[in-house]
Design a protein around this nucleic acid. Sequence first.
DNA 1: GCAGTTCCTTAGTTAGGCTAACTATCGTGA
DNA 2: TCACGATAGTTAGCCTAACTAAGGAACTGC
Lengths: 144, 144
Amino acid sequence: MTAQSMPPAQLALQLRDAITRLNRRVRQARPVGDLTVTQLSALTSLRLAGALTPRELADVERVQPPTMTKIVAKLEERGLVQRTPHPTDGRQVILATTEGGQAVLDQLERVRDGWLARRLTELSDTDRETLHRAAEILQRISHA
Amino acid sequence: MTAQSMPPAQLALQLRDAITRLNRRVRQARPVGDLTVTQLSALTSLRLAGALTPRELADVERVQPPTMTKIVAKLEERGLVQRTPHPTDGRQVILATTEGGQAVLDQLERVRDGWLARRLTELSDTDRETLHRAAEILQRISHA
DNA sequence: GCAGTTCCTTAGTTAGGCTAACTATCGTGA
DNA sequence: TCACGATAGTTAGCCTAACTAAGGAACTGC
């Protein structure tokens, strides 16, 4: 079936099916240091940005602030992120990765998303190119 | 960045990022009759297959049997699926959609995945074609 | 006919999401 | 200047969704 003959509603179903199943699969594989996909994602975003407030990190991760409070609490428990008070605004907190957090991400650099990466290795260049373009589209959609 | 210059490990990261975020978004929108995405997915698979045992449905949905027990329990509570004993094997149960379940799916046919479908409508034919091909690849991967 | 296996369920845990409501701080306008 | 609304973060409580461990019931093979 081509794009011309597939209406958005049907594509939505197929796409949702694909992402929910793949999401389950990816979540099953807990790769690095017992961190979940969600925790790793937050940690990665934090390092990428350098330092963020919880609200900013919540916005980046597309979750509500209380959810980010929990995620950050888990990461802090493990000593992977650090909270420092904002220099001028007493309400705000600055989050940053610790050396331990950097180490975990460095390890991630080496291990990466093993299961998914292995599957991708088995694909053709064309398929990988398709997935790459699809990922860009989906990221754009998610931020709409 | 093209497929040639993007190694599988990096593509895996990008793809994982895209699907986890989109998954969060899709889960937020509870479309039909108070059913969750997970429940709808199971119900859809069940109708597609006609009738399945819980184990088979769990395999299709890529969850562990206890998880499927809970999902089926919720669907049964709402009268959307029916359990009948296996004719010869007393351990097994046969699951099938009820008329109510069919009705919900028919309604779904009409409403479909609203939020996602709307986003897809805004895309170009080329982008939709890309997503369609990507979904096929991802579905294949999830079952590997 | 017993031992092992399979199927399903129950029980309990954990992660991750939400909303509502609270505390503390900030900023501003009368 | 100070009272009050707005903002940042957390807490509390609830839900879904996944897991593992362990159990009972039924089947199967020797």
